[in-house]
């Protein structure tokens, strides 16, 4: 009798512990997800689900890219790329395998894979589509990263901490836009002919070490000084930058007056880069 009772109490106790801890663990899991999507810590957690539309609170910086303007000004896209890559010490290895890029030109059919390419408009298919990190409101890369080396900043920018990244490349598998690059080898070196991978090092911006992931950070370092992102500055008005959550911002005016599309909206990521075609 006694041993039976003891057994019962044991089981009841274990059940109680499981009952109390399981919901707690589950809660923290949800919280974590909300944090990843909203980027406002507990505030976002209190608002619950991670799967709502763009969280209309706090800042969310974004861009509008006017594809026609890029199409009408040959060389403009290359100029923007150069402005970004030279400023941020993005290496050029001269091969596709090691390639690192923060912003690049893509064909319409590759940038917008979900759109129909049947009976295509030839002009549209020749257009240079500026492609970069989408700074999603709900970024899968941030969800996947095991160390928070990539994280959602308070201003909505998806940031990188090169000193914390362990180089697992989970974020690269998670990104639906192919926006992330990995340092397969040291970018600080030079090729066999002695040509450095970074043509001229900008001393105001760090170079990376091998084994970490990198990508566009929407020029957070320039924003801090009140400057526009380098690509926007070089774009001659073909790119508009601003806070998507500020109803009075210039970017919202452009968005309300133009038909724009985002890349892979079905992925539920809420990209912050919009395209006028």
């Amino acid at each position: 009798m006694d041993s039976k009772r003891r057994k019962f109490l044991k089981i009841a106790g274990l059940g109680a512990i499981a009952g109390v801890t399981a919901p707690m663990a589950f809660n923290s899991l949800l919280k974590g997800e909300a944090f990843a999507s909203g980027g406002h810590g507990h505030e976002a957690a209190e608002h619950g689900s991670a799967h709502k539309d763009a969280v209309p609170q706090g800042k969310q910086y974004g861009l509008v890219v006017d594809v026609k303007k890029f199409g009408n000004q040959p060389g403009l896209g290359r100029k923007c790329i150069h402005a970004c890559h030279s400023l941020h010490n993005v290496p050029d290895f001269g091969n596709k395998k090691d390639e690192i890029k923060w912003i690049w030109i893509e064909k319409y059919e590759n940038a917008f894979t979900e759109h129909s390419h049947y009976k295509r408009n030839e002009e549209l298919h020749k257009m240079p589509i500026m492609t970069l990190c989408n700074h999603c409101a709900n970024p899968p890369c941030v969800r996947a990263c095991p160390t928070q080396a990539t994280f959602k900043n308070k201003d909505g920018i998806v940031m990188m901490d090169y000193h914390r990244c362990i180089g697992c490349r989970f974020c690269m598998a998670a990104c639906p836009y192919g926006a992330r690059s990995f340092n397969w080898r040291s970018p600080r070196g030079a090729n066999e002919l002695g040509k450095p991978f970074i043509k001229r090092i900008n001393p105001d911006y760090p170079t990376r070490m091998r084994g970490v992931v990198e990508k566009c950070t929407l020029c957070n370092e320039r924003l801090a000084h009140g400057k526009l992102p380098a690509c926007v500055e070089a774009s001659n008005g073909a790119m508009v930058f601003g806070d998507l959550n500020d109803p009075g911002s210039a970017i919202n005016k452009v968005l309300s007056e133009n038909f724009t599309i985002q890349r892979k909206p079905s992925a539920g990521t809420n990209p912050s880069i919009f395209y006028i075609l």
């Binding site: 996947a144 160390t147 084994g211 992931v213």
Partner: peptide, 29 residues
């Protein structure tokens, strides 16, 4: 195999130092 695949293996402990409950890799560890 996981260690061999890491770009920065000496930082592997970051997974424990910065536990991230929304990453599946954390649970895998």
């Amino acid at each position: 195999f996981i260690m061999a695949d890491l770009g920065q293996p000496i930082r592997a402990l970051n997974v424990m130092l910065h536990p991230t409950t929304h990453s599946m890799l954390f649970y895998d560890m």
